[in-house]
């Protein structure tokens, strides 16, 4: 649903989402990176409904993911770092 305006050759970072590797641009947020790779939903509600980043400024708490072992991290406030490990914890 999203594309980067930056040179793909500059996407030199790698993050892991649910065990798979994805490229990332320095400076982009985790939420942007997830959406760029169409990794939505990024979480589920307690009743199992799919949700994805919504406000991208920290106010809606829809984009929370497990990040490097910390739960409920707001992906839209977190810049990507090389080697980050993200779990969406999606139930079937």
């Amino acid at each position: 649903m999203l594309r980067s305006l930056l040179d793909p050759a500059d996407a030199r970072l790698t993050i892991t989402v649910d065990g798979r590797s994805f490229d990332a641009h320095p400076g982009e947020t985790v939420a942007a990176c997830l959406m760029r790779h169409d990794l939505v939903p990024s979480r589920q509600t307690p009743t199992g409904q799919p949700r994805a980043p919504y406000c991208l400024m920290g106010a809606c708490f829809e984009c929370t993911v497990e990040l490097d072992g910390r739960t409920n991290v707001q992906a839209c406030l977190t810049p990507v770092r090389d080697g980050m490990v993200i779990c969406r914890n999606l139930r079937a």
Partner: peptide
């Protein structure tokens, strides 16, 4: 609340902050 629905401000934030567009 469906994935794929964002705020307009979110699109602006994605553009300015992450150089990302629809």
């Amino acid at each position: 609340t469906l994935p794929g629905v964002v705020t307009v401000g979110a699109l602006q934030a994605l553009l300015k902050g992450s150089a990302t567009v629809p």
